[in-house]
Design a binder for these strands. Sequence first.
DNA 1: AATGTATGAGGCC
DNA 2: TGGCCTCCCTACAT
Length: 571
Amino acid sequence: MAPRTRRNAFPKVVIERDSESEQSSSSSDDDDDNGEEPLSDSEGEEVVAAAAAGSGKEEKMEEEDAAVKKKGKAPITISLKKVCKVCKKPGHEAGFKGATYVDCPMKPCFLCKMPGHTTMSCPHRVATEHGVIPAPLRSTHSPLEYVFQRQLRPKIPPIKPAHVIPNQVCCAVIRYHSRRVTCLEFHPTKNNILLSGDKKGQVGIWDFEKVHEKMVYGNIHTCIVNNMRFNPVNDGTIYAASSDGTISCIDLETGLSSSLMNLNPDGWQGPNTWRMLYGMDINSEKSVVLVADNFGFLYMVDTRSNHKTGDAIMVHKKGSKVVGLHCNPVHPELLLSCGNDHFARIWDMRRLEARSALHELPHKRVVNSAYFSPLTGCKILTTAQDNRLRVWDSIFGDLDSPSREIVHSHDFNRHLTPFRGEWDPKDPSESLAVIGRYISENFNGAALHPIDFIDTSNGQLVAEVMDPNITTITPVNKLHPRDDVLASGSSRSLFIWRPNWTSEAEEQKDERRIVICGNAEKTRKKGFGDDSDDDDMDGGFKSKGKKTKSLKLEVRESKSALVIAKANGET
DNA sequence: AATGTATGAGGCC
DNA sequence: TGGCCTCCCTACAT
């Protein structure tokens, strides 16, 4: 009751409404930019929210209290106008409408980051069902030359045999981890074995032929497993680099691990000293494990002696994370690194010292990954947080600017494992890459985030893989070194996608296709705890070889047929 | 069904 | 340089 006694002291409250009373004075810009009421942002939000919630006395008093705290008796303006969730301005709304996301027109395009249009009308996205198209060649050469090349060689280089991308896949799902998946690795010789690491430090081993059996080692690392590599001289062990600052060598049979290096022998002394290991690769020629930390330094450990060789070398800006390392598959003296200083760098292993990179590949934002092409090692593919894949066609050619920039939605989000575009190790033309998509599409009422197959030679979207039951974003993707298998990792689940051969698939094998899977059953158990070494798993290749009968899926299949018809020019 | 939460990078001062 | 604030599609759990 106390407030009532103070009522007379309260300033006048002006209420603005959305539709009924457009006469309510000031223009929308004034409201926001120089309205007389200098409420802080958060307070402003509160007012709007409370008023919108259904203006009771209590809300009013809160508002008044806020104003009194602020500056006494100036009149308060309460806006009941609908406000854009994104930019907080009235007159438009942004956000999901059903499964379609409506952009805020005040912000630059979410896809290409350029102002003047929204994602829906982005020139890099011709139609909603056609995710992504290439950015124009941005390089030292004139655009004409690019057009000329396209005319001369419209179809080359051919991507791998077309049948590799069917128009249907089967999917097996397993709820494997209790934190998001951070890395995946296929066994180099056993075709059905997939390794996965998560944010909590657990390492999973999954034989996806036995979909219900799983093995998780939880005591190897204490936080994020950032990268794993198989030991090139012993299939039974892997190396893993973690944000706990250690490299472990894990025996897959026993789960026992030994630590090759520990950068935090004195434990936690605060964030300024805690070293985390991100990038890792193995140079088998030289028998060294290379790792890099969050302060810009590279370390090498001899795998025979398990001892650090030499000093740490600063390969990226001091204090910045080095998120990726890759040894060239053909030229063992070449190393590629990338990191948060917006650079990827090519190094000569024989002359590894600070500021001695052979080449620096600048990017506009953090570089999530950089890989040499898998067969010749001549090309480079990078994924950067400016929503662009970049391709350099030859490391022996002009490296001043990328041969192509491909606009693709793979934004940074602190809650997601960073996206990494990865080569298909089986593609003889070294042009096919896989990468998850951040932005969603409305697939007949469901907002799905497909996994994109991109022809990096021209930026075309070759296929997009999705399942109506998988609504999560899948930032981690890996293609099998020998089989037509794609492994994906998302928040807590792993997916295995395999072709589901049909006659239609055969007929349509030259066309770009929407690859839809309908059998990834997403059932969820309640009570999934952090520490449960969860027996929580689902699905398998449930309806392998035959079409699911669910209505939803039938609708989507018809949609996919439509898209394929369009691609054929048969509409 | 609303809310809390984990927690990365950019930008500003 | 560091501290603080903001941030456009998260995915869970409660």
